[in-house]
Design a protein around this nucleic acid. Sequence first.
RNA 1: GCCGGGGUGGGGUAGUGGAUAUCCUUGGGGACUGUGGAUCCCCGGACCCGGGUUCAAUUCCCGGACCCGGCCCCA
Length: 439
Amino acid sequence: MRRTMTFERVRGFRDHYPEDMMPRKKIFKVAEESAESLGFKKVDFPSLEYLDLYRLKSGEELVGQTFSFVDKGGREVTMIPEATPSVVRMITARKDLIKPIRWYSLPKIFRYEEPQAGRYREHYQFNADIFGADSPEADAEIIGLAGMILDGLGLASRYEIRINSRPLLESILNSVGCRNVPAAFGVIDRFRKIDREEFFSEMSATGIDSERTELLYSMISQTVEPGKIRDVTGGFASPSVDAEISRLQYIGDLVSRMILSPVKVDLSIVRGLAYYTGVVFEAYDVMGKHRAILGGGRYDGLAALMSDQDIPAVGFGMGDAVIELLMKEEGKWFYANEKPSFYVCCTRKESKSYAFAVSREVRSGGGATIDDLSNRGLSAQLRNAAGEKCDYAVIIGEREEASRTATFRNLVSGEQKEIEYGKIGQHVLTLKGKSENKA
RNA sequence: GCCGGGGUGGGGUAGUGGAUAUCCUUGGGGACUGUGGAUCCCCGGACCCGGGUUCAAUUCCCGGACCCGGCCCCA
């Protein structure tokens, strides 16, 4: 009778095995490189913050969905549920920073919610923000970065970015006699989930008559090219509406210069009831199958809420969960080594020293170079090499050691070549890895 | 927090109120003794947990945790 102890994962948390971690790493790599290509700098911050940091901004509602506890020193703390407050805390703590500031980060964030498709209690979230610039160009750069990342992952034309403007929506609502804009935002945010009657009755509760509600309903039901916003907002003309439309169109134009996929205006994008004050946006898969891949917007009031400084800001966050679902569907969930990989076989113990020296030479110009640890027969070692999906085997034995050479075997074609020890590094640089490799 | 669905080795499965729980795959070891995912041999590994019904539960019933999906919410 065997007695085994098995440990379960905590609900809603994930393990990441290599076959999944490799493509996940690729997402982060593309995101980080895209950000850095625009001059963004990486920052990091604790996984634990005072709960008050979130109370300020979001009230008790969000607080109820956090992993919070009182630590041994009596501090009320929480596993961070988002990055933005921490980043704003960092920004406001340093008055010497030259603005505009472009920062990105890649924390794990936590939320105590029921797990669902594309939602876990812990996930990675790439974040990028620009502080100290309230221009539409800053808006465009953030939205453009979001698109660049998706493009870089091979998802061009498989996603679309939908943008909206909170002040635009607010102007529209004001112009139709809405007495409770936040409530109306809430209804618009949920409009795809509620039926028509519910929409009408809730809108009427905010003071909008049914004729105007009809117009609103039609307006938020469609997504349009930025150039055609006025086609759907025609019934709500006013100077403030007009100014907001122009800004949104300008942003849309700039973004379209940066990315490969369409930018559409979707007047139903509200982004919850959070702290957004300007442009808001989300990226969706074109099939509309999943929840938003990423989302963000302008939040000019947050720094003032948290400090004595008034710093305009715009940013976005992208979790790793939804994009994983999408990449799997699109056949992009795999990883290919950029450099060829090697397995250094050694046929006899006496040549191990030489084999290790050869390994070092190979590594100097190549990718992963695996030393054999099994000390088994050559055929077994070659089998291991194949199992590791290496591109080449480097065979070392009595003959190679005597002649100061190494035998390179291409594990795909079977071709072999003997290379002098001194020329190994150079030879490796001429080799290519195979580009398939399944996840 | 609520609702629906689900569970047999690591993965995929067969099956059953009773006997050593099926098959494939994967994993480990060995043979082939300097050229590979082959072949052959050997080995390891499972009925989610707890209670109940029963002579007997992996099987039926209840509860819990977990997984999948949804609601709420959405950083």
